[in-house]
Design a protein around this nucleic acid. Structure first.
Lengths: 181, 181, 181, 181
DNA sequence: AATGAATGAGCTTTCATTCAT
DNA sequence: AATGAATGAAAGCTCATTCAT
C-alpha cells in the first residue's frame, strides 16, 4: 500500500500545482481532489491543513525551478545564463507565483521545509549571479535578494498585462541589473 | 439625513481602503462594515455589489494618488520629480495596490468610472515622464506603460519583503529607467 | 395635509394591488413604495405591517369586485347573470387572487375589516345565485359557499394553464352547477 | 456510508414534502434541514440548488400519487374508479400541490425528470378516464387536461376551507364531469 | 406627515475540515 | 489507507421594519 500512497501524493501535488496556478486563491480543495481523482479525505490525510498543501506544493515548485536553474550554472556564457535565469523565473513563475502569495496569506509562519527550499533555491540563483558578476556581465553590487525581489515583482504582474509589456519591463530591469546577455 | 449618509459612505470607503489593502481579496464585506461601524446592509445600500465597492474604493484611491502626482509636475528638477514619482507610487501603492489586482480579477469588465480614473492617472504619469525625458533625466524610449507596469510590480512586493530590500529594488529599476534624480 | 395623505394612501393601494398581483408573494414593500412614488416609511405609516397592507389591498379588491357583482343583480336574464358572475370572478380574480392566498399565509388571524368585506362580497353572490335558482337556471342546492369555493379554485389555476384550458374547466364547473346561461 | 446517505436523503425529502406543503413558497431550506435533523450543507450536498430540491420533492410526490392511481385502473367498477381518482387527487394533492406551483415560479424551465414524471402521471389519469368513458360513466368529451386542471384547482383550495365545503365542491365538479360513481 | 438611510435577522450557497464505513 | 457524506462557520445579499431629519 506504500506505492498507492506515494502515487496519490504525487497526483495530488500535481493537481494542486495546476489548480492553484489556474484559479489562484479561489481554488477549493475539493476541486484539487477531483482533478487528482482522489477523495477529499485523502487529500487531508496527506496534508492535514490546506496551508500544508499549499506549502508542499510551493516546495515542490521551488525544487523544480531550482533544477532548471542548476542547468544554467554550467552554460558557457555567464551573461547569457544570467539573462536566461531572470527570464525563466519571470515566465515560469508567472501563474505559479500565486503560490508564494498564498504562503503569506497568514502573515508569516512559513514552516521549516519551505524556508529550507527557499534557501536552496536562493543558492542556485547566487551561483549564476556570481558567475555573471565575475564575467562583468552583471552589476557588481547586485545581491541574490535583489534578483529575487525583482523577479517576484515582475512575476506578479505577468497575468495582469500583455506579454509584450512584460517583455519591455523585464528588459528595463535587466538593464538596471547591468545584465549584458 | 443627507449628512449621515455622506458620513457613512465616507467611513465605509475609508474602511474598505484599509481592509482591502490589508487583507487583499480575502477581505469580507462584513469586516469592512464592522470597521466602519455600520451594518452590512448599509454597505450594500451604498454599493449594491461587492464589485461596486471595490471599484469605488479603487477610484478614490487613484484620485488621491493622482493629486500627489500633480504636485510633482510643477517641481523644479524634472529628474528628481520622476524619481519621486516612482518612489511615491511604490510606497503608497504598497498595501493598497491589492485593489488594482482585484479590478483585474474578472479579467475585464471594468466600469466606465474606473477606466476614466485610470486614464487620468496615467495622464499625470505621462506629464512627469515627458518632462524628465526632455531634460535627459529618463530613458527616451520609456513609456507610461513601462512605468506603470514596473511600479505595479514593485508595489506588489512591498508587503512581502523588508523595506530596505524594496529600496534597493526600486533603485535598480530607476537605473534601468535611466533616471538621474 | 389631509389630501396628501389620502392621495398617497390611494396610490399605495393601487401599486400594492398591481405588485401583489404580478409578483405574488415575492413582492417587496420597497417595490410597492417605488411604484407608488412614495418613500418606504410612508407605506409603513399608513400600514404598520406588511400584513396590514395585504389586508387593506384585499379589502379594496373585494369591494371593487362586489361593485361589479351588484350590476349583475339587475340584469334581465338571471341565468345569464349567474354565468357572468362565475366567469367574471374567475377571470378578474385570476392574477389578483394571490392576495387571498397571502391572507391565509399566517393560517388565520384575518382582521375584522377583512371578514366584513368578505361577508358583503358573499352577500352579492348570494343575490345573483338565488335569482338564478328561482328561475331554474342554477342547481337548487347550490350554496354561496359552493360558488365561492369553486371560483377561488379556478382562479388559482388561471395563471398556470392556457386560457382555452381554463375556459373548458369553467364550462364543466358551470354544468356541474346546473347553470343554463 | 451509503446507508447514511440514503437515509438522510430520504429524511430530507420527507421533511421537504412536509414543509413545502405547510409553508408554501415561504419555506426556507434551513427549516427543512432542521426538521430532517441535518445540517443545511447536507441538504445542499444532496440537492445543489433549492430548485433541485423542489423538483425532487415534486417528482417523488407525483410518483407516489401515480402508484395510487395505478391501483384504480384495475378496479371492477370504472365509474367508481374515476370518482375515486378525483377524490384521491384532490385530498392527497391538498397540501402538497403547492409544490407544483413552486415549479412554475420561474415561469417554466422544468427539468426533464419533472416533465417525465408529469407525463407518466397524466398517463395514469388517462387510462382511468378512458375506461370510465367507455362505460358511460364519464362525460365523453372530457380530456385528461380537463381532469388535471380541475383537480389542481380544487387541490389548491383544500387547505383554505373546511373539509365539508371541499367535498361539496368536488361533488359538483364530478357532476359536471358526468361521473356516475 | 414624509422621507431616505440604517438595521438585524435571515436566505441561499460554499468551503475547509472531520467521521463513519 | 481511502472514501464519500456530514458539518459549522461564514460569505454575499435581501427584506420588513425603525429612526433621524
Amino acid at each position: 500500500m506504500r506505492r498507492d500512497g506515494a502515487e496519490n501524493r504525487e497526483r495530488i501535488l500535481l493537481a494542486a500545482e495546476h489548480v492553484f496556478g489556474t484559479g489562484g486563491a479561489a481554488a477549493s480543495t475539493e476541486e484539487i481532489a477531483r482533478q487528482a481523482k482522489v477523495g477529499v479525505a485523502t487529500v487531508f490525510r496527506h496534508f492535514p491543513t490546506k496551508q500544508d498543501l499549499i506549502e508542499a506544493t510551493a516546495v515542490r515548485y521551488l525544487q523544480k525551478l531550482e533544477e532548471q536553474l542548476r542547468l544554467l550554472i554550467d552554460e558557457a556564457d555567464p551573461g547569457r545564463a544570467f539573462v536566461s535565469l531572470v527570464q525563466t523565473l519571470v515566465s515560469t513563475g508567472a501563474t505559479k507565483m500565486t503560490l508564494l502569495n498564498l504562503l503569506h496569506t497568514d502573515g508569516q509562519g512559513l514552516s521549516e521545509p519551505v524556508t529550507a527550499a527557499v534557501h536552496t533555491f536562493y543558492d542556485a540563483i547566487q551561483q549564476v549571479l556570481e558567475r555573471a558578476q565575475a564575467a562583468g556581465a552583471a552589476r557588481p553590487d547586485a545581491t541574490v535578494q535583489d534578483v529575487s525581489v525583482l523577479v517576484r515583482a515582475l512575476a506578479h504582474v505577468v497575468p495582469l498585462v500583455a506579454d509584450a509589456a512584460v517583455d519591455r519591463a523585464v528588459k528595463i530591469v535587466l538593464d538596471g541589473l547591468g545584465a549584458t546577455g
